[in-house]
Design a protein around this nucleic acid. Structure first.
Lengths: 239, 239
DNA sequence: ACTGGTTTTCGCCTCGTGGTCGAAAACGTG
DNA sequence: CACGTTTTCGACCACGAGGCGAAAACCAGT
């Protein structure tokens, strides 16, 4: 009873499709996140800005593939975190021949300012240019994912520099989340969850003076869920 | 600079791959969830149990495709919820030719007992048979997803019958989560979030007597996140 | 009827978490 | 040394959730 596609892709066997990988690479720049885009040289959509990526190769899974393609646009060592976003497979998401894409979210810390090729640039997510295909919607999905994970994981490690003050981290979170964040609360929440540890050092005050700020760093640099979500935990376990 | 796969798939154009869709269809049976599996008739892996699914067709996106294939194994009207799980693309996840798969999670309420074809059956997830390809791991991912969403969404609507008592719902949650659940707490949490509403009726007591239980139903039958995750909300908004 | 067993329901308590506010600490400058 | 600035910390409050036990509402026997 296995039915197969009757028309198939344009150039290959019926039921096979070109598979792309894409990455929404975000970096906090000033007061909003920015996404890494490059300007397509060829048709279709020549001249339009699009997400970095390319074809899935024969001997790699999608994550290896997106890392390979990403390495052509940024220094991979500066991408602190990569995770799968989802599959985009609308038959009309682009001109024929049909392409199926697996999208990823990548995060770059603010202290890394990767050199990028001439066709590539960072674009503020609140002022995206016209993008190729559905890359604008995918970018929005990536930003949403980041915002959600900021509140229940330690994903901030992938956005923050190696060492930072609470005020700097507050500005980072505020930019990523799109609303004001209380430094008091941020520090308490993150330290209680054990993701923030003080280095013992203090940073020099700004030009206007003020109490010198304590320097912190993230305790781990791998993603971990820190908020065992609120409800319906197993009995007898601490919140 | 666009590099393409040099070997390509076995039968098609270089850089194109057969794309499958799969579904982890879960249903709470007794004290544990069960997953819908069917026994492969053909090679590769003939005789092995595998997840329902099939090839992505030419004029459908992955979600439409998985619904189409699912309709061959169960009555689609009884699948109360479908969501994307992720992409499985390890080049060696099965014998050549290579296949890329998008997996979905599907949920069937306990009061629907769909008739299934002769090659298809429900299997307890705590005693899975040897499965084809990586379908065992995908099933575990599906169960994990369900467990996570039970605590911060109203996804129970897709597992529960149309009407039920709190005790029945408690058993359902306990089976899905794999640990005991307090009926008191479950009712309070779900009613406070507005996902549980009383019908006003009461159910007949069991053979051993006891106070008749109030009958409830889910207020909505579409997925909604009910727990605005704990930390770092915008200022001035209610918890 | 009354008693005992059973199941459900509800109220009360505690605890942990997060939001808010204001005071105190620690710096610069005039 | 007073003043502005920035950071830090403690106090307070609200709320959500887990735990527990009493009360409610039923059945079966005596």
């Amino acid at each position: 009873m296995e039915s197969v596609g009757t028309q198939g892709s344009a150039a290959g066997e019926p039921g096979t499709y070109a598979h792309d990988v894409l990455a929404v690479v975000l970096r906090i720049t000033g007061v909003v996140p920015s996404v890494l885009l490059w300007q397509r040289a060829r048709e279709p959509h020549a001249g339009r800005w699009s997400l970095p990526g390319g074809r899935l190769g024969a001997d790699e899974d999608v994550e290896a593939s997106v890392r390979r393609h990403l390495a052509e646009k940024v220094d991979l060592a500066e991408v602190a975190h990569v995770e799968q976003l989802g599959v985009y497979s609308d038959p009309h998401r682009g001109p024929a021949p049909r392409r199926v894409a697996t999208a990823f979210l990548g995060l770059v810390p603010t202290d890394a300012d990767p050199a990028v090729p001439g066709d590539t640039a960072w674009h503020r997510v609140d002022a995206l240019p016209t993008t190729a295909f559905d890359h604008g919607a995918i970018t929005r999905d990536g930003v949403d994912r980041l915002r959600a994970k900021l509140s229940y994981t330690n994903i901030g490690f992938a956005l923050a520099p190696a060492e930072f003050t609470v005020s700097e981290l507050r500005d980072l979170y505020a930019a990523a989340l799109g609303h004001r964040v209380s430094a008091t609360n941020l520090q308490r929440v993150l330290t209680r969850r054990g993701v923030l540890v003080p280095t013992g050092e203090t940073a020099a005050p700004g030009p206007a003076g003020g109490r010198p700020a304590a320097v912190f760093r993230f305790s781990e640099h791998v993603l971990r869920v820190t908020d065992p979500f609120a409800a319906l935990r197993p009995p007898g376990e601490p919140g």
